[in-house]
Amino acid sequence: MRKRIAFALICSLAWLLSSSGVLHAQAAKPGAPGADFTGVWYPSSGATLGAATPENPGQQFVWLDEQGNRLKGPLPLTPWGLERTKANRPTGPTVTAVDSNDPDFQCFPSGVPRIYLFLYPMEIIHTPGRVLQVFEYGHNIRQIFTDGRGHAKDEEPTWMGDSIGHWEGDTLVVETTNQNDKTWFGYGGQPHSEALKVTERIRRPDHDTLTIDIRLEDPIAYTMTLRTQKRYVLKPDWNIKEFVCEDNSINFLDYEKKVAIPQKNP
């Protein structure tokens, strides 16, 4: 008798565990088959369209127009955007990190889309009503709400903005608004305003690949819509490691000062 009771208890426990597992699996696949991006992903070379080239070594975006044609020359800035660009002092042939006012060097969150530029992995975690992106770089965690809520109202702009997503088949469509205007689009000091709206279409075209089509609309800073694309590869045996940006100045500032190029007009 005791054995039967024990057996029944074990069976009940197994059923409970398996059913909770089923529930978890359903929550992890909110869309159509294939709409599961769970895993650790690493940016592929070039970080944008195709392989890296000398002019696009991997830590900048390849910019496209609305029709998908590659933009040539400088980005189409408005007068406001031009003023902001002049105030930004990115690193360059004569400007080192010590002399730059790049918010990245002050350990601020990178904002969207710049967070995609760093050559560090990100993990995607599906939870009920949310998709989480855990970026190794700077330990940024981005919440994409997929529970049907709208954008927050009357909130102060934030570094990573307010991201709302919905599924269209196997594609996660994410709209991000309410970012502050302190982040840049990249190391080049490309500005944006608080009016920026970022729309991403995230897909997994095959098991090992994740693509993110990015559309940037900011009529205050740019005279046209900008588009770009990111591509990631799955790293099944990786996990996210610690990366504490604040360590940088402790470990590195003495070296930065040592190797800095003397500025003629500080």
Binding site: T91, G92, P93, A97, F105, F118, L119, Y187, N248, I261
Partner: peptide
């Protein structure tokens, strides 16, 4: 030789 990973803090030096 490009060293893009060093671009974290610039490679101007």
């Amino acid at each position: 030789v490009s060293m893009p990973a060093l671009a974290h803090h610039g490679a101007a030096e």
